[in-house]
Amino acid sequence: MSNSYIFRFATIMVVLVAAILTAVATILKPMQEKNKDEEKMQAILSSANIEVERDEAINKYKERLLAEYMLDLDGNILSIYQGEEEGFSKGSERAFEIDLKKMLEAIKQFEAGSQQVSPHLPMYVIKDQEGDSLFIIPVRGKGLWGPIWGNIALENDLNTIAGASFDHQGETPGLGAEINTDMFSDRFKNTKIFNDQGKFVSVQVIKGGVENSKISSKHGVDAISGGTITSNGVSDMIENVLSYYLPYIKKHQ
């Protein structure tokens, strides 16, 4: 076994391995992307109280989508995408393609002054089972172990929450991980994000139950027992992300 043999062997192996892996990754990429898209659509539909299997999500989403908006931080609509056939009626940015994580970071940098360009906010308008339009805002924040995210569907008054869906990367199974169950997200139905005086109060997830707290059941839901930090994370992310949409909401209420 001379050194040149070792060298030749290693080179052939590296080239072969790289070729095979690249080929497989390229072939499977479209399927993986489709899975991710389907999951995202399923989550958006689920917040509008439309439950579908993942493989039907694309069709159902097409059927239910009224528009995807892109907003600026002052609440102006920059882009309107109305589905595959109609295309864009304004602008050219699709809400569905926004990476929420990057967007939220960009907003933080913008507010701190280290970035000049104002980031844009995504919003979906979906027709629910009764034919009403729901305005869906994607949210994202931090749980106990890693990121948590979800969608909040607002009714036409841009005050009442019609539904919600949440998911997480790796919260504790059986405790924090329960946020992705309907049992938890259904608690948000019919809560309001503004109080009677019209002040933004968001919806709090309350440890120990809403009944025992000072917050009215209009603005609070029960936390998951044993999942306190994840629950607080849900509260924070809703309040934090919705606050960026306040200019739009104020304009259209």
């Binding site: 892996l21 990754a25 499977l28 399927m31 993986q32 899975n35 999951e39 993942r54």
Partner: peptide, 12 residues
């Protein structure tokens, strides 16, 4: 890596 890619494509 192959297994991971296949799982992600077919058993998401």
């Amino acid at each position: 890596v192959l297994t991971d890619e296949v799982l992600e494509a077919f058993l998401y």
